[in-house]
C-alpha cells in the first residue's frame, strides 16, 4: 500500500478493493457495476476479508473476479448460487455476501433457487446484471427479453418477459430495487442500502449487452435506458458512522427508511403521492404498470426491515457455527455412555 495513498476508515486504499482485469467486452455494463461495488466497499470501509463473492454461470457470473481480490469467492453452477450462499451465510453469519447473477442465471435455470432464497431471506446482496440476452452462447433470448423484441440470431421474441423484481416481491422479498448500469450514482446508493439491509437485497440492474442486445428498441439498451429511465426517488444513503445530512427539502416529501444497522435510507420522492417503498401492494402496482408500458422504474421499490433472516429463524448461536470450538460440536463421552445405557438390553 502506497504510504501517501488515500485510505478509508479501516486504513485501506481504493486499490485494496480492486479485482483482476476484466475479460468482458469493452463497455459492458457489468464492468461498470463491478467498479461501483469497488467504490462502495471502499467508501463503506467494508473489511474485504469478511466479504464473500458468489456467482453462478454466465457473463455476469465472471465479474466477481473483477472486484475485491482480498475476498473469498465461489463461482458455482448455473442458477445455483443461491444454494451456495444459503449454506455459507448460515454457517458463518458474520460474512457479508455479495452475489452476482444474470438474467439467464436468475430468470431461467435458477428461478426456483432464486425465489426460495428470497423466501428464506438469506442475508445477501443479490445483484442481477440483466441484459435480456445470453451472451456467452452468442445471443439467444433470455426469459427477461422484451415481448416482440427482434434479435439477429434469435428472431422475434413472442413470450412475455419475466420481471425479476415482481418475482422477488411475490416471494416476499424484504428488499427490491432496480437500477441502470449507466446510472453510476444510483447504483452506488442502492448498493449501499442493499449492503446495510440484513436480509436478501435484490438489486435488478439493467446492464445492456453491447454485443448482442444494444438495439435502440430494446429496454435493455443504453439508448433506451437513458431515455426511458424513470427514477423513483433521489436517494441519499447516510451510514450510521457519518453525521446525518439535513437536506433542503420540503417537509412531507422526505421518506426515511431505517435500516437494521442503525443507518437511514433517505428517499426523496419525485412525486410524493407516487410511491411508498414500504407498501407492498403499491410496489406490485408500480411494477405491473411499468411492465405494461415497457418502462423501467429505477429506485427502491420495496423494503421491509422487519422480516427475520434465515440465521435468525434458525435460532443460531451468535458465534458463527464455523468458529465453534470442538467441545461445542462433539458431545462428551458421558453422553454416549448414557445413550448406550438407555438402549442396551435390558435396562
Amino acid at each position: 500500500m502506497a504510504a501517501n495513498a488515500r485510505v478509508n476508515e479501516i486504513g485501506l486504499s481504493r486499490n485494496d478493493y480492486k479485482g483482476g482485469v476484466s475479460t468482458l467486452c469493452q463497455g459492458c455494463g457489468h464492468n461498470s457495476i463491478a467498479n461501483q461495488i469497488i467504490a462502495v466497499a471502499y467508501e463503506m470501509s467494508l473489511d474485504p476479508h469478511q466479504v464473500i463473492k458468489l456467482s453462478g454461470i454466465g457473463c455476469s457470473s465472471k465479474s466477481p473476479a473483477y472486484f475485491l481480490n482480498r475476498s473469498h469467492g465461489f463461482n458455482g453452477l448455473h442458477g445455483r448460487m443461491p444454494a451456495l450462499a444459503t449454506g455459507a451465510t448460515t454457517v458463518n453469519r458474520s460474512l457479508i455476501a455479495i452475489g452476482v447473477s444474470g438474467d439467464g442465471d436468475t430468470g431461467s435455470i435458477g428461478l426456483g433457487q432464486f425465489k426460495h432464497m428470497v423466501r428464506r431471506n438469506v442475508p445477501i446482496v443479490y445483484i442481477v446484471e440483466n441484459n435480456g440476452v445470453y451472451g456467452l452462447t452468442k445471443g439467444q433470448f433470455s426469459a427477461t427479453a422484451d415481448y416482440g423484441q427482434e434479435l439477429k440470431y434469435a428472431g422475434v421474441n413472442e413470450l412475455p418477459p419475466i420481471d425479476i423484481c415482481l418475482e422477488a416481491l411475490a416471494a416476499d422479498a424484504s428488499f427490491v430495487a432496480r437500477s441502470f448500469a449507466g446510472d453510476s450514482k444510483q447504483v452506488r446508493e442502492l448498493l449501499k442500502a442493499a449492503i446495510a439491509h440484513r436480509g436478501t437485497a435484490v438489486l435488478d440492474i439493467i446492464s445492456p449487452c453491447v454485443t448482442f442486445n444494444n438495439h435502440e428498441d430494446s429496454t435493455k439498451s443504453y439508448a433506451y435506458g437513458k431515455a426511458k429511465e424513470e427514477p423513483l426517488h433521489d436517494i441519499t444513503f447516510i451510514p450510521f458512522y457519518e453525521p446525518i445530512e439535513i437536506e433542503d427539502q420540503e417537509p412531507g416529501q422526505v421518506r426515511a427508511v431505517k435500516l437494521y444497522d442503525g443507518s437511514h435510507l433517505m428517499l426523496k420522492a419525485l412525486d410524493p403521492t407516487k410511491h411508498d417503498p414500504t407498501d407492498r401492494m403499491a410496489a406490485f402496482r408500480l411494477l405491473e404498470e411499468a411492465r405494461e408500458q415497457q418502462l423501467f422504474i429505477t429506485g427502491l421499490i420495496y423494503v421491509d426491515e422487519n422480516r427475520a433472516t434465515l440465521p435468525e429463524i434458525s435460532r443460531l448461536v451468535d458465534t458463527p457455527l464455523v468458529h465453534l470450538p470442538p467441545e461445542k460440536l462433539r458431545p462428551p463421552r458421558e453422553v454416549l455412555d448414557e445413550i448406550n445405557r438407555r438402549l442396551t438390553c435390558c435396562n
Binding site: G76, P82, L84, T86, A88, T90, N92, H116
Partner: peptide, 21 residues
C-alpha cells in the same frame, strides 16, 4: 434446512463445507 429440492440441498451443503462447516 429443508431445501426446495435435492439440488438446493447439496448446493447449501457445498456452500457450508466451503465456508468451513
Amino acid at each position: 434446512i429443508q431445501a426446495e429440492d435435492e439440488i438446493g440441498a447439496i448446493g447449501m451443503v457445498v456452500g457450508a463445507g466451503w465456508a468451513g462447516a
